[in-house]
Nucleic acid binder design. Sequence first.
DNA 1: GTATGATTTAAACGTATGTTTGAATCAGGT
DNA 2: ACCTGATTCAAACATACGTTTAAATCATAC
Lengths: 211, 211
Amino acid sequence: MSQPDTKQRILSAAEHLFARDGYHPTSLRSITTEARVNLAAVNYHFGSKESLLEAVIERRLSPLNKIRLAQLEALLEKTERAGETPTCREVLRTFVEPTLCLRLQGSDSENFLALIGRILADPRGVAMTIFMHHMEPLMNRLFQALALSLPELSRQTLFWRVHFTFGSLSHIMRCHERHAIVPEDVDIEMPVDDLVDLFLDFATAGMEATQ
Amino acid sequence: MSQPDTKQRILSAAEHLFARDGYHPTSLRSITTEARVNLAAVNYHFGSKESLLEAVIERRLSPLNKIRLAQLEALLEKTERAGETPTCREVLRTFVEPTLCLRLQGSDSENFLALIGRILADPRGVAMTIFMHHMEPLMNRLFQALALSLPELSRQTLFWRVHFTFGSLSHIMRCHERHAIVPEDVDIEMPVDDLVDLFLDFATAGMEATQ
DNA sequence: GTATGATTTAAACGTATGTTTGAATCAGGT
DNA sequence: ACCTGATTCAAACATACGTTTAAATCATAC
């Protein structure tokens, strides 16, 4: 009974448990149990727990960033051909929409969202370095595009507002279940498209605020 | 050579290390070493590692929330006497300013900010429950006040925008050191007062955005 | 000075962890 | 059928952890 998908099963189980409980509290034994795989399989296929975490990140972040970058470049080309500058909302959408849409592609991707939220909350963690390595080209391009769409902002103000925006986004990514205090008359369930618009209303207004 | 401040030294060392490395990766041995205290002192004075975390949170969160609540109540009284409603910016300031001002009171408080940022990033963590217990009365009052200052918003929209705002704030709390990608011409250093205003510009505009 | 309770200390305990090992099993080619 | 390299497996390894223990030390009151 061979199982050629051992690596993928480990990746999915690790993604799930890292996202739910965090990297350190999750043991290799709980991962291999959930993946119905021998304990030694992780070290055999990935080398170490830390390398497994890298692989988990890489598996989803690479394609996601490809999509985000492609959408951003397409927007910049389109507006340039028309002799216009892109709006802040359009630029942010190229980043935010592919992110939150991971929720639609099954629960695995949803786990990944929560995991990234955790990584962003651990500035000195092992994952931050490799995460930032993946993000750097996209972030630079995004910053460029936002500067184009908000020419009246100083570079410093722009940087901080991008920082604030990413803070909000990482917060949403983490909390697909309620952990905030929710007034009893508020329904927290929401289709992804509506959430994207709700977020873009907020973030665009914040980015475009008059000082 | 008695050391009646053993408990406080443990609390400060734990606050520092929990904030820097996270709860799980931090060992009692590293805490007691940094506090120059015997290993068994933690279990003697606090009972367990988890109870120590609770004590760390309690020590600073209680006075902080007292200040935040007092400022909020003062604002609400003042505006009510004047027959006005508070502005969204004023309401948010009562929460944000005491928070970020912890940076001014020495490095210990700064550590606490980062720790809270971590707690908010771990929805199922042991600390979230006791943190939320401390926050609930204040959050309810804050939500009330924001609803007063933004009467045209639906409860649901208001909730989500508060959620976004707290996401931004927790992100700042975590990252007093640079971990985002910073363009080389941007100076990230900033006085606390300026940061408060920069954040309130962003958050107020986001909260008040026309849908 | 001595007795008493609180605190500190060094050492050990039991357990859980990431990793390694070496034999067993599998798949594919000749 | 047999060899070969890749993969799986149960077991063990070394280490680090949170916690407990019991003796030693301290502070305080009589």
